[in-house]
Write a protein that binds this DNA or RNA. Structure first.
Lengths: 143, 143
DNA sequence: TTGTATTTTTGTAATGATTTCAAATATGTA
DNA sequence: TACATATTTGAAATCATTACAAAAATACAA
């Protein structure tokens, strides 16, 4: 369950809380991630922001995403073999990718919470549960 | 738990069972994967086999791994953001990557078995649980 | 066995994502 | 305003992966 603070937190607030100076570009990218929970690739972010920010550089998108991830304002998903994807939802949850259309969505299933534990003497910091298959739309089309 | 058949299965048998003609190169790569359960990258495989197979081409390693994965003789791991990794252990199990040294190992924890289920109307074919943190060796060094 | 068709391997070139880097721009502060 | 610092930018470099066509190996029929 999300608490009110998380739900209401603005992009600006998220950046501040994570110690990131909210430049125009950073705020645009942070807001994009928080408002478009499609786990976008770098190119999706760039292409969607470019029309309203024609001076935006791909390098800035890369730089900013690195900054967001390093400071805990976003997480990186390796669910997609082809492209790195990003998510502003930083609380543990499960991700699903459709083998047909490639869309990545949240799955309503709780991942095991392993953080803080030791397993096989490994110190666990975080974990990701990735699920693959066919999304409802593609499932229909295949029949 | 592994059954005898899995334990005893040779590279040759694995290839045959999966309908792959066992050429010299394919057999070398299959055996390497089955004998070195380090979840190697393409380059690790190539570098380790090259000394004893000086005519081996990187492209062959790529081609063969694609073939192995497509026919179910191996699985692909996206746990490592930098490089694709491969595993000859095809039964569901959990993987761990060390944030410090980058090594990938099996973790003695059962992943949720979701295959065959529908969640949020998604048809589940397979899933991967990836765990990150510090391996025992790096944990020691950090103290 | 020989010749021919098919499969597999190989090396090079192309592609695509990401990083590096140094100059240009913007911002914060005295 | 003037200067120092932080940020953005675009071009070039890097690195993993794929495409491709020629060469080599193998299968198979005569």
């Amino acid at each position: 369950m999300q608490n009110k603070k998380d739900i209401n937190e603005s992009g600006q607030e998220r950046l501040m809380r994570c110690g990131i100076r909210p430049s125009v570009q950073r705020l645009a990218i942070m807001n994009y991630l928080m408002e478009n929970r499609i786990h976008p690739t770098v190119d999706q972010i760039f292409s969607d922001l470019y029309p309203t920010m024609p001076t935006l550089s791909r390098t800035t998108v890369y730089n900013t995403l690195k900054l967001l991830v390093d400071s805990g304002a976003a997480i990186i998903l390796t669910i997609d073999e082809k492209n790195t994807r990003f998510d502003a939802e930083i609380k543990p949850h499960t991700h699903f990718m459709c083998n047909q259309c490639g869309s990545v969505t949240d799955l309503n299933i709780n991942p095991p919470i392993l953080k803080g534990n030791y397993i096989d003497d490994c110190e666990i910091l975080n974990s990701e549960l990735y699920v693959y298959g066919y999304c409802p739309e593609c499932k229909k089309k295949r029949n």
